[in-house]
Write a protein that binds this DNA or RNA. Structure first.
Lengths: 220, 220
DNA sequence: TTATATTTGTGAATCAATTCACATTCATTA
DNA sequence: TAATGAATGTGAATTGATTCACAAATATAA
């Protein structure tokens, strides 16, 4: 897979759809379904069968003609591609509204994203316990990130301080950052930064209600 | 604008970028910047100037040749397009981890999304106060949604019950739903449904770390 | 064992989004 | 007031993503 993906350039949309397939396959696996066709996957995700097959074909051929894809096996393979076949050490910075929610978000753990450290700068929060993790002082950020071999950092601090925090996170050698603060962050070329913009979809709904209401909705 | 957008089909990406421009223009406005060029907007959002101009051109011509775009005016116009020039009545269903975070999320209010009602089915939560809003019993969902003229519903309940809730929400005549539950929901054609998949970006990071690490990161 | 029905995997074709490139417009300066 | 420079707005060109359509492979039924 690794060589495949460096050969061709895989689009962001394809990766996002792999996430969808992975989640759906987990459901099908629970339902003890043995095989599934691109047609069925497509119907359940509101895509075309060709789209599903094309997405998968970038990474190999996982199906059996005349039969479809083996549910468990395909789930396992997509898990491999997405890096969900391993555990990730995650640190969370900022334990306000959103930070607290993320600590308790079961879906992350289930996928192998383990929050190992929590940081904050508020003395009232430092030392407090969140789901078994003691909140550390942001002052020790770099040292702690290194010592605990953190691989992914989640930013959930106010927009005003996010850039300073990220600068320190980058200094600590972190190469993957998920940002919940509503602000554009600058990172070096070799750091992966993704933004979770919680207002964006709400704004899309607002746009849709105001502009697109000629009768029917347009879903993703 | 309304007629423009029904003439041509505006892509989802364009709308998402309008959200980005809007946020950036708010910053520029605070910095008392009078005008801004497509070049500068593009640089700050890691886009091309042509992309910025094309996006805006779908909705009209807001700039002055030789000068650029007037910051406040453009912000106002994009606000209009996105429906952020008005207040929206929002109901939140499910006040667990994520629901609680959303109640306190300032960014929503700032954009005119006002959480007016909160529902839950847990007797321990019903009647409790969240930022001045008393949690209502999910049993009265339909009645309350109608009486309070709710326009947008945010779903933050466990995946297992989300579809049942959504069915009731649709029955209440709601046409716009934002779903945080990690599950594919079915709604009629005339209802706008958007999904906020919190794991997706984390999975993208995971994918990037495993597959794309030939030195440099690829940011959005 | 053969015939028929399915369904994959994938080049080719189509459709959509992005970028190019430039005429046009306006601000500014001499 | 004319000349210069800057930046928009937009068709055309390009690039990228999606869908088509079909040969190949396999399952299943006769």
């Amino acid at each position: 897979m690794i060589s495949e993906s460096s050969k061709r350039r895989i689009s962001e949309s394809t990766i996002h759809r792999l996430s969808l397939y992975y989640r759906l396959l987990s459901v099908l696996e629970k339902e003890s379904k043995e095989t599934v066709s691109s047609k069925e996957l497509a119907e359940r995700e509101k895509l075309t069968p060709a789209q599903v097959r094309k997405d998968l074909s970038f990474f190999g051929s996982f199906g059996t003609r005349g039969l479809g894809y083996p549910v468990s096996e395909l789930k396992r393979r997509i898990g491999e591609i997405l890096g969900l076949d391993r555990q990730w050490s995650v640190a969370l910075i900022g334990v306000g509204n959103i930070g607290s929610a993320l600590v308790g978000y079961k879906e992350f753990q289930r996928q192998g994203f383990n929050i190992k450290l929590i940081f904050d700068n508020d003395q009232r929060k430092i030392g407090s316990n969140h789901k078994g993790i003691v909140v550390a002082d942001i002052k020790n950020l770099e040292k702690e990130l290194r010592e605990n071999k953190i691989e992914i950092v989640v930013i959930a601090v106010p927009a005003t301080v996010a850039q300073y925090i990220v600068d320190d996170v980058v200094k600590a050698g972190i190469k993957a950052i998920l940002n919940f603060a509503p602000v554009n962050l600058k990172v070096p070329e070799d750091v992966f930064l993704r933004n979770e913009n919680m207002s964006m979809e709400l704004e899309y709904l607002s746009f849709a209600l105001v502009n697109l209401f000629n009768g029917r909705g347009t879903n993703r």
